[in-house]
């Protein structure tokens, strides 16, 4: 219940927020934040099964190029192109997932890193299709949504992308939440705890892991596609190794145990450097300090801090009442 109310409240805030923002730059920061929230949360879905994927960067690259090229080469509508890009990425994840998911722990993480590196190399190499290292430019924005008399969203202003990203984020979070609360989420958590037991009582562990992987990557593909149409340019190494590492850090700093963790992590660590721009010079150190503090004092991440805080407040209230 608290969860529901908080989410509704935050959503309403986010709907009205752009009207209070002083310039397009802040709108941009929020768009990126919302992208990062989808990325961390979808990465967490994969990690529910106990496997840490580092393929998100590669999957975003595939999504971005697929969507951009479908629109630019085949003249597809941007909307279809983005959806197809997401599905294509899910397919790629499914096909690579079956062999990859046979590996456990660090081995899995490593092959996913190498997979991403291969995606970068292939996009650089395949010039006739992708334009090579130089990347592609002038990727068109999504087609306008016009409902005569009501609204006209033409994606000429950043605000329109803001609402699009907000829609994507809410839709993704709802789907991810539903999956986690469904029997699938339950099974994935079981697999994470005792893989061999889950398999021996009849759960197709590889199948479920691949399902989680390919669903998580679907969202990465959609975000990649969104990004390419939003920024209107894309390079093979836009989403390289460090991009993925950042997502992973946002997720872990936020806390992997609860659904809100990665959201919190992505939000704080994307927004923090921007709102303290005065301190930009010292940002790396603030960032480092936050990381170190979380590593040493908050094994459950920022989300753990919040739940502790709430418990503490409740305790105080109870003492007062008593």
């Amino acid at each position: 219940m608290t969860y529901l109310l908080t989410s509704l409240f935050l959503t309403v805030c986010l709907i009205f927020l752009p009207h209070f923002m002083s310039g397009p730059y802040y709108v941009h920061v929020f768009i990126i934040t919302m992208m990062n929230i989808i990325l961390t949360s979808s990465l967490r879905l994969i990690s529910l099964s106990g496997q840490i994927s580092l393929a998100h960067g590669g999957m975003m690259t595939i999504g971005a190029y697929t969507s951009a090229l479908l629109v630019m080469r085949l003249g597809l509508s941007t909307w279809y192109a983005m959806l197809i890009a997401g599905l294509f990425v899910a397919l790629v994840a499914c096909l690579t997932g079956f062999p990859f998911m046979r590996l456990k722990g660090i081995y899995f993480s490593i092959v996913t890193v190498f997979f991403s590196e291969m995606v970068v190399l292939i996009t650089q190499q395949w010039e006739s299709l992708t334009g090579g290292s130089g990347g592609i430019y002038n990727i068109p924005a999504p087609g306008a949504i016009v409902v005569t008399g009501l609204f006209n969203i033409d994606f000429l202003s950043k605000i329109h992308f803001y609402y699009f990203a907000l829609f994507l984020m809410i839709a993704s979070l709802l789907i991810l939440y539903a999956i986690e609360k469904s029997r699938i989420g339950f099974i994935l958590k079981g697999i994470k705890q005792t893989d061999s037991l889950a398999e021996s009582i009849g759960i197709n562990t590889i199948g479920f892991k691949v399902l989680a992987y390919s669903t998580g990557c679907f969202f990465a593909g959609i975000v990649g596609a969104f990004y390419s149409h939003y920024i209107s340019a894309m390079c093979p190494d836009t989403f390289g190794f460090f991009y993925t590492i950042n997502i992973l850090v946002y997720m872990t700093v936020g806390g992997i145990e609860v659904f809100a963790g990665p959201i919190l992590g992505a939000f704080v660590l994307t927004i923090l450097p921007e709102i303290t721009r005065v301190l930009k010079e010292f940002m790396p150190f603030i960032f480092a300090a936050v990381l170190i503090a979380v590593i040493f004092f908050l094994p459950e991440g920022l989300a753990g801090l919040f739940s502790r805080l709430i418990a503490f407040i409740k305790k105080i209230i109870r003492i007062k009442n008593a």
């Binding site: 590492i245 940002m283 790396p284 150190f285 480092a288 170190i292």
Partner: peptide, 20 residues
């Protein structure tokens, strides 16, 4: 697992320090 997180964080910390 946590050592791994530490190690990942060190990447960002060290890199940012050198960048600075």
């Amino acid at each position: 697992d946590r050592a791994m997180t530490v190690s990942i964080s060190l990447i960002l910390i060290i890199q940012n320090i050198v960048l600075f």
